[in-house]
Design a protein around this nucleic acid. Structure first.
Lengths: 207, 207
DNA sequence: TAGATTGTTAATCGATTAACAATC
DNA sequence: TAGATTGTTAATCGATTAACAATC
């Protein structure tokens, strides 16, 4: 059965809903209305209901949404109930930060290894380090659901091609480049410089 | 004179155009057509021309766009021809990575100081460290165009309020929270977890 | 029951795409 | 001149907002 295609705009709001629901849960709040969620996300109540309607609707007329249930539904939709094995390629500042960040683990994202071309300073690195030459062998012997690319831009495409050739299908890309990948490979880009330039744009063009 | 309002979607594409133009320039390519740019960004040529038309249009019929000129125009539009004084608040993994990253400097983004509540390990930190108690005084005596918030989510709103009270007007937020700010404060959010969850969504829902 | 609030359809708004005259 | 390609208007498509019957 083919699901309705959910728009990119909706998908990007899901993590925000989730975050606010976590916070409501922590505050011991049991139910929430589309109006309240709308205020929290700074969108309209109509949009909140439309968004959830994409997935079937989780509310109850006259009551609203049960916080825990809605949170769990969103976790399922986003695949946060699963475990992911990840590796990082590129031990720059970002690679190092990601390797040492423990926050993703509680949602099932495990960072198992970090790779670089060069022998690097592994002081204070809380993940096993390997040389790039060991990558192929590593991927052969270990599950790798997601490869994080945190290399410099100029080598990112080569690294990307290499890991895809080893069978990795999902890439989280921090390198400042638009990577080309085959149709069946899923890629998500995050770019600090793009974000900073947008800030700079806003500063330069305030009304 | 009030400028035409440029949509968020267009603004987000500007850094990508810029990046590809830098690359074309480096390759020694002098002119580029909307069609070629469209291929590079994986959008339509029509959209490329519409985007530039928002700012007046920089091309020449029958020829295309001059790479260097277009790049410079976009730099001006995004405010990359200026210098920004920045401080970082929060010496976690991300704060540390940003402090040590030197790549933004060449576009005029200078990171001058980094703050934290606690006395932290300043080994390998390439930016001056201060305690939060010194923040007010620092802001009084030094220009701060942009404050980067890289604290934990739970203290981010307090930190945000504090720096705004000292007169800082522009915030680059890495904390996983939707900050409330006065109307005249400009904020740009970047969220790793949101990006990772979008990836996880795509993996879970590949049609 | 009366009030609240959802799910969903219809209306509106805005962004993307198509088309083409202008012109280099 | 002929071919290429822009800038811009019009058409289409998609996302957001409004409205309201259903119902808890």
């Amino acid at each position: 059965m083919s699901k309705k295609i959910v728009s990119q705009a909706v998908i990007k709001r899901l993590p925000r809903y989730y975050r606010h629901l976590e916070s409501l849960e922590k505050q011991g709040i049991q139910k929430v209305s589309s109006g309240t969620l709308a205020q929290l996300l700074d969108i309209t109540a109509s949009q909140v209901r439309q968004d959830f309607c994409n997935f079937g609707g989780f509310g109850q007329q006259g009551y609203g949404y049960d916080v825990v249930t809605l949170k769990e539904e969103l976790a399922n939709i986003m695949g946060l109930n699963k475990t992911y094995n990840m590796i990082i390629i590129g031990v720059g500042n970002i690679g190092r930060a990601l390797a040492n960040y423990t926050g993703f683990k509680k949602e099932g994202f495990n960072i198992n290894a970090i790779f670089d071309i060069a022998d690097i300073n592994t002081d204070g690195l809380s993940v096993n380090f390997y040389k790039m030459s060991e990558l192929q062998n590593y991927v052969k012997n270990n599950a790798v659901d997601i490869a994080v690319i945190s290399t410099q831009g100029k080598v990112a495409q080569d690294v990307c091609n290499e890991i895809i050739s080893y069978g990795v299908k999902h890439i989280w890309n921090f390198a400042p480049i638009d990577l080309s990948v085959p149709e069946d490979v899923i890629i998500e880009n995050i770019s600090m410089s793009e974000s900073l330039y947008v800030l700079s744009y806003k500063m330069t063009n305030k009304d």
